[in-house]
Structure formats: C-alpha cells, structure tokens
Simulated assay, not measured.
Amino acid sequence: LYTWHIYQGRGAGWINALQKKGKDKYGMQVLLNTPAEKLIFGKDGKVAGVVAKDKDGNTLNIHAKAVIIATGGFADNPEMMKKYTRFPNTDGIAQTGKNGVGIQMAWSAGGGKEGLEVQQSYRPGPRAVSTTNHVSATAKQPHLWLTPNGERFCDETIMGDWPAAGNALERIGGQMWVVYDNKNLDSMKHDGIVQGVGVMVPIGAKLTNFEKEWPAAEQAGWAVKANTLDELAKKTGMDPAVLKASVEQYNKAAEQRHDALFAKDPQYIFPVKQGPFYAIKSVASSLGTLGGIKVNDRLQVVTDKDKAIPNLYAAGSDVGGMYGDSYDLLMAGSTIGFAVNSGRIAAESAVKDHNLGKK
C-alpha cells in the first residue's frame, strides 16, 4: 500500500516538510498565488528567471540562475487538449489551474515536445462530482454499462483497470449509463460495494449517504430513477427496445452464469429485475496529462535534437517520456513517484550546475 500515495500526511506531509526545511536551512521563500507567466532571457539569450504576477495583479521579475518548471500539465487548457490529446473532452479530476503555461514557457526557450498525447485515464463517473459521493460510487461498480442508445459494450469489471475502462468509454463517444435495480442498491447500502473508489470509498463500504445525496444528483440530471424500463428509457433517452434487449441478455447471463458477449466473471453479473431502476450518467475521466516537455536524464530541458538548454529544468507531469500511450495502473503511485524523484533530480542538477544551495 505504501508504494501508492497513501502515506502519513499524504501529499501535504512531504510538501510541508520540504518547505519547512527549505525555509529553515536555505532561507527559501515561497510566493503563493503568484503564477509565472513567461521566462526572462539574459543578454546572452540564456534563461535568467521568470515573469510572474501576484494576486493583486502586480508584475514581478524574478531573476534566477536556474528555473525548474513543474506546473502539473495542461488538462485545464481546452485549446491544448483539443490540439494534442486523442480525447479532449474528459472530465479532468482536480485539474483546475493546470493550464500548460509552464510547458509553453519551456517551448519558448527552444525546448522539444514529447508525450503530449498521454493522459491518466481514470475510472468513469459523473462529471464534476466528488469522489466521495455515494450516488456517484454506485456508478463505479461493475453493474450494467450501456451506450446512450442502450447497448452493452464491454465487460464491466474493467472499471478497476482505469486505462482499459477509459479506452472502452472513449470508443463509444465518452458517455454511458450505468444501470442497476433496487435489489442491487439495497446490497450496496447494507452489505457494501464490491469495487472500491480508491481509498475514499473502499471495497465493502456501505453507501449509507445514498438517500441523502440522491435528490441533488437527480436534480443535476446525472442520476435517474424509474419504476419501469420503459420509463427509464424515456428519462435517459435510450431506445426502449434496445434497453430491454440488453437487460434481457444480461439477466440471462446472470442466470446461466455465463456471459456470451464479453465473458464477464459471473460473480459480478448482478441481474436487473426489481424496480425501481436506476441509471447514472458517467463520462470518461482523467487525472491529468503526462507529457509536454522533452528532457534528458538530468531533467534538463532539451531541444528536439537533445541539446540541453542552459539553466532550464522540468519535472513531474510537465515532462514527457515516462509513459507510452496511457497511464500504467500496474505500477500504482508511479505518477507521484516520478513527480517527487524528477523534482529531486532536477534540483540536484541545478545545484550542481550553478553552485546553488548555500544560504
């Protein structure tokens, strides 16, 4: 478990520790609410600092011997997402402010491009809804997944394999309905869920907040309840004949303990028979982008021809080359592991190159 990011204090634990050490030992100053906007170049054409703007709109010219770019990617930049990623309309989870400015700063210095197409596909769910929401949690179970027209399209147990789930949903346009019946709901509320939603709503958690959170979900339009399948089709826009045929096939698979369409593990085929029926609208989701800037093994920003750009380094999700075409869930925690260690290596390289680190 501790290879993942669930250690004491989580992210804030080590960030606070590093900031304290930086301040106490090196006199480091942290400027909050002061995003950098562009690089400063010296008379020799080399990177010499950044131009930033504080919360009051004041422009700050911050001169430095070295600049390390670590701004978290570009998932909050619609133009870059549309230009560089294969599925730009994902629901970005916790991506506010990650607008790609750091990546563009590196490119302005001649930095090469790498890994721009890579996203961290995350488990599908309702758009812009908290991970801890219990109504949303019901959609992140291996229930019946249907296209907007009502057709089944995959083995729903891939919910636990985020890239596979994301790819399957992208293929049908990025939106689906997750359907279950009242018996399924009772089991989730009283016995617990079979698929964990990270550590926030773990396996076995009883969805005791469902009834309290349902009205807001229904009013927002991503959660639908109906007494019959015909009514459910009308409320969701699914074709009633297609929906009923999909449910019939699914129930038959549950009864025979064999899924002829997708070979789903029979222990996770929960029949849809007992009304009222529920449908949760889910969309393709992403934990962010994972590329943009080309670097070398010292985390120096390099050109497309691998020539190091003096005084400029990059780390974390701004850096390309760590992944192939998608996030690798088989190595849980790899993104934060790379962020921490690439930041460390970039800082060590800057210290060595410029004799930094003395108070």
Rank of each mutant, 00 (worst) to 15 (best):
R171A: 11
K281C: 10
A75T: 06
L116V: 09
G42K: 04
D306S: 04
A284P: 00
G174I: 02
L144H: 06
P124M: 08
W14A: 03
A36C: 06
D76M: 01
V247S: 04
G150D: 11
W162Y: 14
S342T: 15
N296E: 11
P240A: 07
L312I: 04
G237Y: 05
A36K: 02
K352F: 08
G174V: 05
E156V: 05
K235E: 15
A137D: 12
G9H: 06
N251H: 14
I62R: 01
A315K: 00
P163Q: 06
K55S: 15
D259Y: 01
T85Q: 04
S121E: 10
P276V: 14
T59M: 11
G13V: 05
K244P: 12
L299I: 02
E248Y: 05
L261A: 15
A223Q: 06
I158R: 03
G198M: 06
A253Y: 02
T59L: 13
G333V: 02
N182Y: 13
K359N: 07
A223P: 10
A254Q: 08
A168Q: 10
P202L: 11
P276D: 15
T157V: 08
M80D: 11
N355Q: 10
Y313A: 11
A233W: 05
D186L: 05
V118D: 01
V179G: 02
V301A: 08
N355H: 15
T138D: 12
T3L: 13
W214H: 04
N182T: 10
K83T: 14
P124E: 08
T96H: 14
M81N: 04
G221K: 07
N209W: 06
I345G: 07
N61M: 06
W177D: 03
K234A: 15
A12F: 00
W14V: 01
H5L: 05
P88G: 02
K38E: 11
R152N: 10
K189E: 14
E151M: 07
G102W: 03
L356Q: 00
I93Y: 11
A226V: 01
A223W: 00
M238N: 11
D54Q: 11
T132W: 00
I345N: 12
W107M: 13
H63Y: 10
V283E: 03
K38M: 03
G174Q: 06
G110A: 14
I6S: 09
G11T: 01
G49V: 12
V319L: 12
P271F: 12
N133W: 05
Q104H: 08
T131W: 04
T138I: 01
K83Y: 04
L312G: 01
R344I: 08
K65C: 01
Q249K: 12
F74K: 00
F74T: 02
H134G: 00
G357L: 02
